[in-house]
Design a protein around this nucleic acid. Structure first.
Lengths: 336, 336
DNA sequence: CGTGTTTCCGTAATCGTTGACGATCAGGGA
DNA sequence: TCCCTGATCGTCAACGATTACGGAAACACG
């Protein structure tokens, strides 16, 4: 049924290994022989079996991308970047949606080890320590690159964006716009991204010598969809309301912006708003905001590239690649 | 270096095949022996090699999903549905972005054949006939299911939504709202989806015994991003302007809606607008529109399910699964 | 007690390919 | 002439699992 190298070899009147050499363009093969083999391949419509090849050569042509949810456009963009880079280099990408569920994440990693993928691009679930996974991967000699999460100490290759710096810049922009009482709304205290962003927020206030009012630092966590709506509504309803807000996550931003609308406030006249712009649903609001767009496509691309650099096996050093989010103000856009 | 069944067998003091039986829960294995083997597996941290397994058993645990662009949330949703279903059944999904480029599509299919994936979920590129691909897949005995595209004749398994019916319903809704001069704006005459939708549009007009003005049927094709903006602007600037519009594609809809805004028209007071709501960027407009949401997640899910049904190999019949898009009017939402 | 069935476990061949190694032959330099 | 190098192609043994088949023990039934 299935056409194998053996069949091709028989038809071309050469040995099996010669066919292999023609297919892989490895070793010496005479011009005439090569032509004969190629003709046989064409005639039989032979398609090499990568399973056998991978097994024998102890390497795979498949990468895996483990992320929370491909449905979220931030992750999608990373996925696309990784896929493009992998494709360029002859690799495929195997997508794993974990929904931030540690069990699913573990199960996927188990399967990836079984499948002997060449390497793993990992966005660890934020709800628990990633050390266990990393140890597991290392133990089995699996190459991997961590995306978007900060790790303590240089224990792995990491590609991430500078959320702290971006939060600092956004906050400075709010202050630069003449605001003196900015609030911060993040996703959750347990969310690593929110944590580094609140740090940037604090830094900026400190640097501008503005007081830090803890009541102005809130998290949308407890609230269901849309995140952040209630938190922002509360902030605006308080007697000492903020005159600017940093929405440190797109999902809380969508809720927060709605709350601002409902409060009858106009952006940017009544209140200045800065936000991380990670998902396309925010496009519509972007013109009135100061936004930080994370280079997610590039993160995926560079992560895949770094992962494939690791193939040789000699490079045992760890690298942390930090990308700068792109900050946009209204003026930037108005000028165009 | 790598732990194999042989190592486990040696440690457990049994034969290799016994380990295989324990791992796969196949055949008879005594309680005591099983415990011994499991202990050895645990101690050695043995991970079965699926490459070898797949090679020998002539089957793969990987599906492939070939689609235009994972970045578009319509396809993303399909991907997620397929991935979830595959995961349930122990399969992984290998994502292939073709960007509607036939060459890339061919190259991917070649790689999928090489990799001997279990089956392919295919969204064929609309710019050319899909017959060649289908023939190729069939010839190599590769199972596949076509998603979202209509095929002439029952030549393959297909999962798609009833775009024609949805367009008919949406148009009927426009007419039901008291409009008598609706316009149609599609993506392109060469786009299969647009073609079936314009058919539904025409049917609805005919059924309502309204005249069909060809000038009211337009395509956003030629225009760059955002598609549809110019076409709608032209329609509205004309002397005999439409009193309702069916935006038959989300990408043209975004441009079209902006054009309506710019013309100073209010929806739904001045003009009634119906649209296919496939991408999340449209969420913000949805409350003022009559929308058709395609069951994309479910399409992916059912396609994967159908593909996996084909495994036995005996079912040679073809099935066409047609899903109904969900129509939402303002009243539907207001009632909640 | 003979025969059949079920349980349990092992040997050998096999999946389709590549790596290690060798054989042969032509050509070139010492 | 002899040896070495490079080009060309082949044999054999893996890679790590599964399938086919077989043997032995235990149990049941007439």
């Amino acid at each position: 049924m299935m056409v194998t190298m053996k069949d091709v070899a028989a038809l071309a009147g050469v040995s099996l290994i010669t066919v292999s050499r023609v297919v892989n363009k490895s070793g010496y093969v005479g011009e005439v022989t090569r032509k004969k083999v190629e003709a046989a391949i064409e005639e039989l419509q032979y398609v090499p079996n990568m399973l056998a090849s991978n097994l024998r050569s102890q390497q795979s042509d498949l990468l895996a991308l483990v992320l929370p949810d491909i449905t979220n456009s931030f992750w999608t963009s990373i996925a696309r970047g990784a896929e493009d880079e992998a494709w360029e280099q002859g690799y495929g990408v195997f997508i794993c949606n974990t929904d931030n569920d540690p069990e699913k994440e573990d199960a996927y990693i188990q399967r990836l080890l079984q499948r002997r993928v060449e390497g793993v691009l990992l966005v660890p679930s934020p709800v628990r320590s990633t050390e266990a996974q990393i140890e597991r991967l290392k133990q089995h000699g699996m190459k991997f690159v961590v995306i978007h999460r900060r790790l303590d100490g240089m224990v792995a290759n990491v590609v991430r964006s500078d959320g702290e710096g971006a939060a600092r810049t956004l906050t400075a922009e709010l202050i630069g716009a003449g605001r003196t009482r900015p609030a911060f709304v993040g996703l959750s205290v347990s969310d690593p991204s929110s944590r580094e962003r609140v740090k940037g927020f604090r830094d900026a206030l400190r640097q501008a010598e503005l007081p830090i009012d803890e009541a102005m630092i809130r998290f949308g966590e407890a609230v269901r969809e849309p995140h952040g709506h209630r938190v922002v509504a509360e902030l605006l309803a308080g007697e000492d309301r903020p005159d600017a807000i940093l929405l440190a996550n797109s999902r809380v931003a969508l809720g927060g912006l709605r709350a601002i609308e409902e409060a009858g406030l106009h952006i940017p006249e009544d209140i200045t708003v800065a936000a991380f712009h990670d998902i396309s649903a925010m496009d519509i609001y972007a013109p009135r905001l100061i936004t930080a767009v994370q280079p997610s496509y590039r993160m995926g691309q560079l992560a895949a590239r770094r992962l494939l650099e690791l193939r040789g096996g000699v490079d045992e050093s760890y690298k942390e690649i930090i990308l700068e989010p792109k900050i946009s103000r209204w003026e930037d856009r108005a000028r165009r």
